[in-house]
Design a protein around this nucleic acid. Structure first.
Lengths: 142, 142
DNA sequence: TAATATAGGACTAGCATGGTCTTATATGCT
DNA sequence: AGCATATAAGACCATGCTAGTCCTATATTA
C-alpha cells in the first residue's frame, strides 16, 4: 500500500512544528521543543512521539538537549531534509516491489519477470516526488 | 510504506501476460489464459493467484470461461486500465495518510494538523502517476 | 534533592499479509 | 456416463508488522 506509518506522520508533524517555531522570531521564547510539547499540541501519544524524536536525533536531523528545560532543535536546514529521508528512517528503503531494494536478487520470478522494468520506472518517479519535497515545504508559506 | 502487496503484483504479472498473449497474433493458439498457466510460468503460488484472477473477473477487468480448456481473457482495452485501478482492488483506497480516505473526519489531529494540505498535494501527485500508467504500459514495446 | 527532560530496552494486543485447504460447480473429452 | 480440469468461493491459519505501553537510566536545572 501507499501509506505513511504513524511514526513518519508524527515525525513530519514534529518537524513542521519545529521549523515554524524557528521561523517565528520570538525573542525570548526558547527555541527548544520538548516531546511533551508536541504530544500535547497535536494529541499524539507521548511515549511513541518521544521515540520518534530520539530516532530523528540519532540520525542527526535534530539536536537534543538533556535535562529540565531541555528538548530538541533543528540540526540542519529543513530545505535539505526531504520527506523520503524521514520516511526511510521509519519505514526502511522505499520500494514498490521487494526486488527493488535487494542487493542480491532473491526473487524467484526475477529472470522471467516482465514487469520489473516499467515498475522500476514508476518506482523512481514516486521516489523523486518524495525526494523533491523538503520538510520545509510542509510549512505554510514556504 | 510505499509498496505493492503480493496480490497486486500477481495481478499485474497476469495482466501483462494476457495482454502480450493477445498481442501475439498466433492463429490457432487459444487466447484464454488459465490460472495454472500463469502460476507455472512465473513460479507463483497457484491458489493465491487463482483468487486474484477471480477478483479481477469479479470486477469485470477480465472475463472467465469455465470448464476444461477454460480460463480468462481480457474484457477491456488494457489502455483503459490503470495501475491504480488494480492496486485499489487489492489494497483498498490509496491514501498517504489515513485521513485522506475518510468520508467523515475521525482523526483527532485534523483541526490542528498543519501538514494535511501539503501532504494531500503529494498524495494527488502520486495518485496521478499511478493513474496515468496503464497496464498496457507494462508490456515491452507499448 | 526534586522535577523534568532525553535515551533506550522489553513487551504486547491487534491486525494485515500471504498463503493453504476444501468444497461446489461448469465444461470438454473419451 | 464419467473423468479431468477449469473457475468460484469460503474457512482457516502462521507470521510479522504496527502502534503503543511501561520501565529504568541518565542528564540538567532550580
Amino acid at each position: 500500500m501507499i501509506h505513511f506509518n504513524r511514526k513518519t506522520e508524527y515525525a513530519l508533524i514534529a518537524m513542521e512544528h519545529m521549523i515554524r517555531k524557528e521561523d517565528s522570531h520570538d525573542i525570548g521564547a526558547s527555541q527548544l521543543t520538548s516531546a511533551r510539547e508536541v504530544a500535547e499540541a497535536y494529541q499524539v501519544p507521548y511515549s511513541l512521539l518521544a521515540k520518534v524524536l530520539q530516532q530523528l536525533a540519532g540520525r542527526g536531523l535534530i539536536k537534543s538537549v538533556h535535562g529540565t528545560k531541555g528538548g530538541y532543535i533543528l540540526a540542519k536546514d529543513p530545505e535539505e531534509i526531504s520527506v523520503i529521508h524521514i520516511m526511510e528512517i521509519f519505514e526502511g528503503p522505499m520500494a514498490l516491489a521487494e526486488c527493488f531494494k535487494e542487493e542480491k536478487i532473491t526473487c524467484p520470478q526475477w529472470d522471467g519477470c516482465r514487469i520489473k522494468h516499467p515498475l522500476s520506472q514508476l518506482n523512481h518517479k514516486i521516489y523523486h516526488l518524495l525526494a523533491d519535497t523538503s520538510v520545509a515545504h510542509l510549512v505554510a508559506g514556504h
